[in-house]
């Protein structure tokens, strides 16, 4: 039985305690959350004028890394699955235009979207600093993509899990050496040696090393994980996890169909 407990949650950052799953299961969620969640990012850029101090390529890279937020991500299709065959239409891409003249700092808020539902997730990301007489005019085309192809399509920044520790104390002589050694200050003595909050243990094993009589043992709980996930602002953490599960489910359905097809081919 899978048990999930939310330790900490805001839209851009989530920390969950997950019990009763294997490493393979949680690793699948991590990998999919990192590399297969579709999201919008600027993929193509037409530069009409750029007299700033940055090269065109640099400007393109900076604009590409700005996370874009959409109200309705379902509306967009992947360019290769779209009816236009990747040529580009309103259901697979959005155009954002940028035009600025110095002296000023160009921010992501200067990107004007043709589709009001697509906007930069943060308005205060500096793109380029323009001095007197410098000008940037360009058109950026945002498309849907996945993190596997480029980091700009990666919806998560930090996405990691670790095992919860298991601390066994046998025949302790209450010398207190391990209490001083623990960098997190987790251990204390109340008649016997006790642990405060096991979730805070980072498995450094310093207590194990200082103990002269091997009374304390730190090991991994193989079925309990702390999953830490941080979003870049384009999609909130809840949606990332939900989409990740959907993507895995679709993959499994495809696998099942593929295996059935091979089985049928064998028979005939």
């Amino acid at each position: 039985m899978i048990h999930v407990e939310i330790l900490d949650y805001i839209d851009t950052n989530g920390k969950f305690l997950i019990k009763g799953v294997s490493t393979a299961f949680i690793n699948a969620i991590r990998r999919v959350a990192m590399s297969e969640i579709p999201k919008l990012a600027v993929d193509f850029i037409r530069i009409y004028d750029n007299s700033s101090s940055l090269y065109n390529e640099m400007l393109a890279s900076r604009i590409g890394l700005i996370p874009l937020k959409t109200d309705d991500l379902e509306f967009f299709k992947m360019p290769n699955e779209c009816e236009c065959n990747g040529e580009g239409c309103s259901s697979c891409q959005t155009i954002l235009s940028l035009s600025a003249e110095g002296p000023k700092m160009v921010y992501s808020s200067d990107l004007v979207s043709t589709d009001s539902s697509v906007n930069p997730a943060y308005q205060d990301i500096p793109i380029v600093k323009l001095y007197e007489g410098q000008r940037v005019i360009c058109e950026a085309i945002a498309k849907l993509g996945i993190g596997k192809n480029h980091a700009k399509w990666q919806a998560t920044t930090i996405c990691a899990y670790r095992n919860v520790a298991k601390i066994d104390i046998i025949n302790c002589d209450l010398c207190g050496d391990c209490i001083k050694e623990c960098p997190k200050g987790l251990l204390y003595i109340d008649k016997e040696l006790r642990v405060k909050n096991i979730l805070d243990c980072n498995l450094c094993r310093l207590c194990e090393r200082t103990c002269s009589i091997d009374a304390i043992r730190v090991s991994l709980d193989e079925y309990q994980f702390i999953f830490n996930i941080e979003s870049d602002g384009s999609i909130n953490v809840k949606d990332i996890v939900n989409t990740a599960v959907d993507v895995i489910e679709n993959k499994l359905i495809n696998l099942k169909a593929g295996v059935a097809e091979i089985g049928q081919r064998r028979r005939t």
């Binding site: 700092m105 500096p126 870049d232």
Partner: peptide
């Protein structure tokens, strides 16, 4: 210009640079 994202973890950092 200050990098838009952290080279290692990808977190958006440039918005805090000016402050």
């Amino acid at each position: 210009m200050f990098p838009v994202r952290c080279f290692t973890c990808g977190s958006l950092i440039s918005r805090h640079w000016e402050e």
